[in-house]
Amino acid sequence: MDEKALLAMSDDDYMNEEQLAFFDARLVELRQETLDEIEASKQEINYGRVSDVSDRATLEEEAQIALRLADRKRQLIPKIDKARQRIRQGEYGYCLESGDPIGIKRLLIRPTAEYSTDIKNINEKRERRYEDKR
């Protein structure tokens, strides 16, 4: 099954076995890509010796950026694992808060999505309001 066939299915077929298998395969692929990207980021870091102070500072800054990127990617792994667990439990594709369908289009963009667009927007507004009060 491809994305086009997935999008062509009726709403009555939402999160049937074919769709769950599609998203499980996509999550497996995303997990492996993420692990590969983390490893590539680690390999990019140049720890060579440089005598020039500005060159050393540049290398250290590049290493810090690479480590931050790798850390952000590393944080995606548990989200992928949780999404796959929701597939096995039959809860994948439904908002954790409202129980409403998240939607195929949103899941294609972000297969680890846990909330419907409406609930995500409400939560983000709530977070911004909290941050503004601090």
Results as ranks from 00 to 15, higher is better:
Glu44Asn: 07
Arg129Gln: 12
Asp52His: 09
Thr34Phe: 03
Gln75Ser: 13
Ile119Asn: 02
Leu30Ile: 08
Ala66Gln: 04
Leu59Met: 14
Leu30Gly: 02
Tyr14His: 14
Glu33Gly: 03
Glu29Ser: 14
Glu114Ile: 05
Ser54Gln: 13
Ile87Ser: 00
Ile38Pro: 01
Glu39Asp: 14
Arg26Asp: 09
Ile109Gly: 06
Gly90Lys: 09
Asp71Thr: 05
Asp52Pro: 07
Leu67Ser: 03
Lys82Ile: 01
Gln43Gly: 06
Asp55Ser: 07
Tyr115His: 15
Asn16Gly: 15
Pro101Phe: 05
Ser51Trp: 11
Ile38Gly: 00
Arg26Lys: 14
Glu131Cys: 00
Ile45Ala: 04
Asp71Glu: 13
Lys105Ile: 03
Gly48Leu: 03
Arg26Gln: 14
Gln75Pro: 00
Arg86Ile: 03
Gly103Pro: 10
Ile80Lys: 01
Asn46Gly: 02
Lys73Asn: 02
Arg88Cys: 01
Lys82Trp: 04
Asp100Phe: 02
Tyr14Val: 13
Asn46Arg: 04
Pro78Asp: 12
Ala70Asp: 00
Thr58Cys: 03
Glu60Thr: 12
Ala57Val: 13
Ala57His: 08
Arg72Ser: 09
Ile109Met: 13
Pro78Asn: 06
Ile104Asn: 07
Lys105Gln: 07
Asn16Gln: 14
Lys125Tyr: 05
Val53Ile: 06
Arg88Glu: 05
Glu114Pro: 03
Asp24Val: 00
Glu17Arg: 08
Pro101Gly: 15
Met15Tyr: 05
Ala57Trp: 02
Arg128Asn: 12
Ser116Thr: 12
Leu59His: 05
Asn123Glu: 14
Arg126Gly: 01
Ala66His: 01
Asp13Pro: 05
Arg68Gly: 11
Arg88Leu: 03
Glu124Phe: 06
Leu30Glu: 06
Asp36Met: 09
Ile109Asn: 10
Ala40Ile: 01
Lys105Leu: 10
Gln75Thr: 03
Thr117Arg: 04
Asn123Leu: 14
Ala21Asp: 12
Gly99Asp: 11
Glu60Cys: 05
Glu91Phe: 02
Ala113His: 02
Tyr14Gly: 12
Phe22Thr: 02
Glu62Gln: 10
Leu96Ile: 11
Asp81Gly: 04
Asp81Tyr: 06
Leu35Pro: 10
Arg129Val: 08
Gly90Asn: 03
Asp132Cys: 00
Ser41His: 04
Ala113Trp: 00
Leu107Cys: 11
Tyr47Phe: 15
Asp11Ala: 12
Arg56Tyr: 03
Asp36Pro: 03
Lys105Pro: 02
Arg31His: 10
Leu108Thr: 06
Asp52Gln: 08
Gln32Ser: 14
Lys133Asp: 09
Leu96Pro: 00
Ile122Thr: 12
